[in-house]
Design a binder for these strands. Structure first.
Lengths: 227, 227
DNA sequence: CGGTTGTTTGAGGACGTTCAAGTACTGTGG
DNA sequence: CCACAGTACTTGAACGTCCTCAAACAACCG
C-alpha cells in the first residue's frame, strides 16, 4: 500500500504525465511503498524482474558488475523516475543491480500488474513508449560520450547537464566516486578531470561546484550541436 | 508504395511479430520503399525525424560524430530491424546520423503516420514497447561493455554474439573498420585485438572468422553470467 | 592490371589506471 | 564540543592500454 504522502509523489512521475488519473490509480493500488536504507541492494544482476520501481524520494543507481566485482554505474534515478521497465515487459533477467544511494522511499509495482496494465490500458502503453524513448536517448547519449569524448570532456558535459543557479552553482546529486563510475572512469581520474577543468572556471569542493564560464565549458565539451 | 516483394520482408520485422495483420498493413500502406546505395546518408545528426525506417534488405549503421568528424557506430541494423522509433515518438532532433553500409532496400514510414498509429492502435503501442525494451537492453549491454571490458574482451563478446556454424565459422556482417567503430576502438586496435585472440583459437581473415574454442572465448570475455 | 580501399604492423606517445600515500571531510560517541 | 574513526577525495609515480602517425601489405573493383 502507498501511504498518504506517497500518492502525491507517485502521481508526479513523468511516466504518468499524460495518463488519466484512473489509470495511474489502478497501478498505484497494486503498488506498495517502502523505505530503503542507503547502500541497500534492491535487486541483483541476473535476478528476474519482480517489480517496476518508482522513486518517490532519495536516489538509486543501476550498476553493472564484472567478474571481478568492479562496479560501474549505468544510470542514476531520482524522485519521479521509474526503472527497469524493459526487463519487466520482456520478463527477462535483469542486466544490472540496483543500489540505493541515499535513504530512499520507493514504490514497487508487481511485474504482473504492469504487464496486465500494458495489455489492457492503451494510455499506459503510450506512456511507456514515451518513457522508454526518453531513456533510449539518454543511453545513446552516453554511448556517444564514451566513444567520442575523453574523460574531462565527459565530466564537462555531465556538469552542464545538471541544474545550476544563475550564479553557476551546482550541487552534485551523488558522491564524486559514484559520478566517476557513471562517467566510466576511476575516482582518481575524475579528480584529475576536475583539476583540468579549473582552467575553464570550474571550482568548488565536495558536492558543491561552481561553473564560472558555462560558455567555454560548452565549447570544451562540444561533441556537436546535438550532443 | 511498397513493391510486391517488399511486403513479405516488411511483415517479417520483429516489431510487428505480435501485431494483427490489419495493423501491419495499415502502416505498410503509408510506407514507401526505396533502394539506397552503399555509403549514402539516410539522415544526419540534428535532423528532425521524418520517417520510421524498416530495413528490408542490406545493412545500415547509426553513427555519432564529434566536432572533428570522428565517427563511431552506435548500432548496426539488418533486415527486419526498425530504427529511430524514439525520435519519431518524441518529435525530437535525431541524436545520430544513419549511413547505408551495403546497397539496401529500406521502407520509410512517415513519422506522422507512426504517431497516429501509436495513438489509435493499442497493438502497435504494445509492439513498440517490446521493441524499445529489446533495444534498451542492447544499449545497456553496450554501456556495460564500454565501461567494464577492455578492447580484446569486447571483440570476443561481439564475435560470440554473431551467428556461427557448428564448425565455428562466422561471417562478419560488416567491414572490420566498422566493427572497430561499433566496439569503441580504432581499426588498428581491432587488428591487434584479433591478434590477441589468436591464442584463444580465433583465426581467419577478412570477413571470415573461425572460432575454434568458443568455451575459452566465453571465459575470456566473461563479464558475468548476465553479460 | 593499376588504382583504390581495407587491413596489418611498428614506433612513439597520450590518456587513464593502479598502487600507494597523504589530506580533508563526516559522523559518532565521549 | 571535541576527539576519533571511518570514509571520501586528492596527489604522485609507474605502468598499461589504446591511440596516432607512418608505412607496408592485401584485397577489391573497375
Amino acid at each position: 500500500m502507498l501511504a498518504i504522502g506517497d500518492h502525491a509523489q507517485f502521481r508526479r512521475a513523468p511516466l504518468f504525465a499524460q495518463m488519466p488519473g484512473a489509470s495511474i490509480d489502478r497501478l498505484g493500488s497494486a503498488a506498495h511503498a517502502q523505505t530503503f536504507a542507503s547502500k541497500s541492494l534492491l535487486f541483483d544482476q541476473g535476478d528476474q524482474a519482480e517489480f517496476l520501481y518508482v522513486v518517490l524520494s532519495g536516489r538509486v543507481g543501476l550498476i553493472g558488475r564484472d567478474q571481478d566485482d568492479h562496479e560501474m554505474v549505468v544510470e542514476f534515478f531520482g524522485p519521479g523516475d521509474v526503472f527497469i521497465i524493459a526487463a519487466v515487459v520482456l520478463e527477462l533477467p535483469l542486466l544490472m543491480a540496483a543500489r540505493v544511494l541515499d535513504d530512499s522511499r520507493i514504490a514497487l509495482i508487481p511485474a504482473a500488474n504492469v504487464r496486465d496494465m500494458l495489455e489492457a490500458d492503451h494510455a499506459f502503453a503510450k506512456a511507456t513508449v514515451r518513457e522508454l524513448s526518453r531513456h533510449w536517448r539518454l543511453l545513446v547519449g552516453q554511448i556517444k560520450d564514451l566513444k567520442l569524448r575523453r574523460a574531462p570532456q565527459r565530466l564537462a558535459a555531465h556538469l552542464l547537464s545538471l541544474p545550476r543557479s544563475r550564479t553557476g552553482e551546482i550541487h552534485l546529486p551523488e558522491e564524486r566516486q559514484l559520478i566517476a563510475q557513471r562517467l566510466g572512469m576511476t575516482p582518481e581520474s575524475l579528480s584529475r578531470a576536475f583539476a583540468d577543468l579549473k582552467r575553464l572556471g570550474v571550482t568548488g569542493r565536495g558536492r558543491q561546484v561552481v561553473i564560472a564560464d558555462a560558455a567555454s565549458l560548452e565549447r570544451y565539451a562540444a561533441l556537436d550541436k546535438s550532443g
